[in-house]
Design a protein around this nucleic acid. Structure first.
Lengths: 102, 102
DNA sequence: CCTGTATATGAGCATATGTTCATATACAGA
DNA sequence: TCTGTATATGAACATATGCTCATATACAGG
């Protein structure tokens, strides 16, 4: 193995990439993000459509909020969520398209 | 929230996407794959270049082998690894490029 | 105010994940 | 056949993760 020059990743890059990839790799978060990619959506609607408990959805939304991947607006008691990081959603879609078209 | 038609992900798609994304989200595996993207590489070289223990590298290579993301050839006592799933490597590169160019 | 509805949050728990340490395996060379 | 080198593997352990259950919060309507 001759000593070629490698391009090295900085620790920051690795950690940031890891953060993003872990965020979208969990099935529940993936389903939420894929739904939000299609439309803004209330928590109750996510529960109904995805068949996942309110608590589980809400915990994962908390996670996605911390990562700044989603945003929300409030109308009375209802919270409408939308995605807030276009690039992350694009990456997710690309992975999904790859899998579905093979 | 009116009842629009959503595009739903099949469980298979979700699980496969999750598998791939989890595989590349771990920092050690990410570094290995990024190195292999640049050149075929022996285990010892990975240990040296990445500064990660032989055992940790080898365990993660086992994981990547199970997922069919890498292949290897043997020369005496030395195992040379290379990536074996172009698309997964492309996805990883895209994530990294996104992070580095922002 | 009191009640109901929508959502968030905390505690506890079970499982998954990644590492280290110790050891096994397989081959090369003397 | 003995020794050294390169890599793989198993056990044990610590930490992270995602869920459920129970409860808190905040607002709307009467």
């Amino acid at each position: 193995m001759e000593k070629r020059q490698h391009h090295f990743l900085s620790e920051n890059t690795v950690e940031e990439a890891s953060r993003i990839l872990k965020a979208i790799s969990d099935p529940t978060r993936m389903k939420i993000l894929y739904l939000l990619f299609q439309e803004e959506c209330s928590v109750g609607h996510m529960v109904e459509v995805l068949g996942i408990s309110q608590s589980a959805i809400s915990h994962q939304l908390g996670h996605l909020r911390n990562l700044r991947l989603v945003k929300y607006r409030r109308e009375g008691n209802t919270y409408y969520y939308a995605y807030d990081d276009e690039h992350v959603v694009n990456i997710l879609n690309q992975v999904i398209e790859h899998i579905e078209h093979q």
